[in-house]
Design a protein around this nucleic acid. Structure first.
Lengths: 237, 237
DNA sequence: CGCGGCTTTGATGTTCATCAAGTAAAGTGG
DNA sequence: CCACTTTACTTGATGAACATCAAAGCCGCG
C-alpha cells in the first residue's frame, strides 16, 4: 500500500525530469516514444517524509517502486526486532527483491529522509517486459546487479567484526553524501539493525573511533578525520 | 571455464529428458517448437564429479548453467577462506547471481556429489530474452524467487546462534534427501563455511545434539531421531 | 513538564573463536 | 600393499568478542 503524503503529479513523457534515472535510461534506450508516453502517463511521483512507510511487509505486490530522491530503508520485521536489509539510495529500485517472484512483500520499506518515489503499476512493467525484449534484458541486468550488491555486501559484513562493520557504514554514508562531514541519517539503533550487533556496542565502537581521533562525533553529526585509517579498519576488522 | 570430465551429449529438442526442469517448463510454455529446437541443439550436458569446478571466481561469464542432477556449492574465495553462499539443488539455476549483471563471476561453483549440469550459451539466453517477452518474464520471476531465497536464508541464519544454524543445515539436507536418515554430503568444514562459524564449534554442536539424543551420528551418516525438537532448536537458537 | 524513546557508560556473563593435541580416515608414491 | 603424508575429525582449555543488564542523562513531543 502506498502512503500518499503530500502530493503527486502526473508527468507526460517529455516532462520526465529524472535526469539520472536508470529506469528512464532503460526506457529511452529501448522503448518507442508512443509506448513511452502511454507508460509515463500512468506513472505517479510521491513525496514522502521520514518514517513514512512505502511498502509494508505482508502486503500484496501491485506496484513497482523506484527511488528518485532521498534515502529509504528496506527491512524485515522479525521476532527479534527489525533487521535492515539495505539502504536504498537515489536511483535505486526499491522494488527489487520479491517483486516478480512473490505475491506478497517479504519486507517493509520506509523513508529515512524526505524522499521522492516513482510508482508504477507492476502490471505495466510486466506488459513492457512481455512486449519489449530489449527493455526486459536491460531490466534483468540492472536488477541482477543490484541484488548482487545487497547479497555480497551482506556476505562481506558477516566476515567483519564490530569495528569493520561500523567503519563500513560510516564510509558508505560519507560516499553517499560525497563528503567526509555529514549528518548520520539513521539512529544508532538502526545501525545496529543494519550490521547485526547490539546498540550498546555500536555506540561503544563509535566512541572508541572518536577517542582514537579517527572520527569526530556530535550527536548525529560525523566528521571523518582519518579516512585512511578508517578504511584500514574496514578491511581488517 | 567449464571443466569437461566424463562425456557430454547433444540433445535435440524432442530428446530433452529433463522431466522436472524449471527451465524446460519455461521454454515449453513460451517458445515456439522451431525456436526451441534450434536452442536445444546448442545446449550441452556435462557430468561432473565431486570437487570438479564448474565455475571459477574471476572468470568471464559466457555460459548459463543449470543443475539437472546432484548437488553443487556456490562459494566465494576470500582472504579469510572460503565462504559458502548457497547449496545448489537439482533444478536450481547455478548461474543466478551476477550472470546478467557482471562481466566476471564473483563466486565459484563446484560439485558436491556426482552431478549433471546443463550448459547454454549466455548469448543464446539473451537472444531469447530479446525476442520473446513471455520467456523473459518467466525467467525474471524464477530468478527473482531464487535469489530471494538465498538472501532471506542468509538473513535468517544471521539471527540464529550455533545450534539453530546447525539444526537448519541438518533439516535442509533431510528435506533434500526426503529422509530423516541420510549421509551428509559436505564436510564439517564446509558446514562451518556455510553458516559462518568455526569447524570446532560445528563439531561440538553436532556432538551435543547427539548426546541429547536428537540425532545419531556415525561419521557422515546422520539419523534425525527427534525432528520435532530439532525444529524447535532451529527456531529458538 | 512528564513521558517515552534515544543515547551513553560501566559491569557482568554468554557465546563463540582460537589454540593445542590427539585420533581417525583418506589419498600418494615407491 | 605398505609406509607416508595429508586432510578430516574430535575434545578440552583458554581468552576474545560480543550481548545483556543496569543506571543515568538527554531530547523531542504532546
Amino acid at each position: 500500500m502506498i502512503f500518499i503524503i503530500c502530493f503527486f503529479t502526473i508527468f507526460t513523457a517529455m516532462e520526465c525530469n529524472c535526469e539520472l534515472c536508470d529506469l528512464k535510461n532503460i526506457f529511452f534506450a529501448t522503448i518507442e516514444p508512443s509506448e513511452l508516453e502511454e507508460f509515463c502517463a500512468s506513472r505517479i511521483e510521491i513525496t514522502i517524509a521520514p518514517k513514512d512507510i512505502v511498502i509494508k511487509q505482508g502486503d500484496p505486490i501491485h506496484d513497482f517502486v523506484y527511488l528518485k530522491e532521498g534515502l529509504v530503508k528496506l527491512y524485515r520485521e522479525t521476532d527479534a526486532g527489525n533487521q535492515i536489509i539495505s539502504i536504498g539510495k537515489p536511483f535505486d529500485f526499491v522494488s527489487l527483491l520479491s517483486v516478480f517472484g512473490e505475491e506478497k512483500y517479504q519486507y517493509s520499506v520506509s523513508a529515512i529522509t524526505d524522499s521522492v518515489i516513482c510508482v508504477m503499476k507492476l502490471q505495466d512493467i510486466q506488459k513492457l517486459i512481455l512486449e519489449n525484449g530489449a527493455f526486459a534484458l536491460r531490466l534483468i541486468k540492472t536488477m541482477n546487479k543490484a541484488t548482487d550488491r545487497i547479497l555480497f555486501d551482506y556476505l562481506d559484513n558477516s566476515q567483519k567484526r564490530l569495528y569493520g562493520r561500523v567503519a563500513h557504514v560510516l564510509i558508505d554514508f560519507s560516499e553517499i553524501f560525497n563528503n567526509e562531514t555529514f549528518d548520520l541519517p539513521i539512529s544508532r539503533k538502526e545501525i545496529a539493525q543494519l550490521v547485526g550487533m547490539s546498540i550498546e556496542n555500536v555506540i561503544r565502537t563509535i566512541s572508541e573511533l572518536r577517542k582514537d581521533k579517527i572520527i569526530n562525533v556530535f550527536g548525529k553529526s560525523i566528521v571523518i578525520l582519518d579516512m585512511h585509517r578508517l578504511k584500514q579498519i574496514r578491511s581488517n576488522n
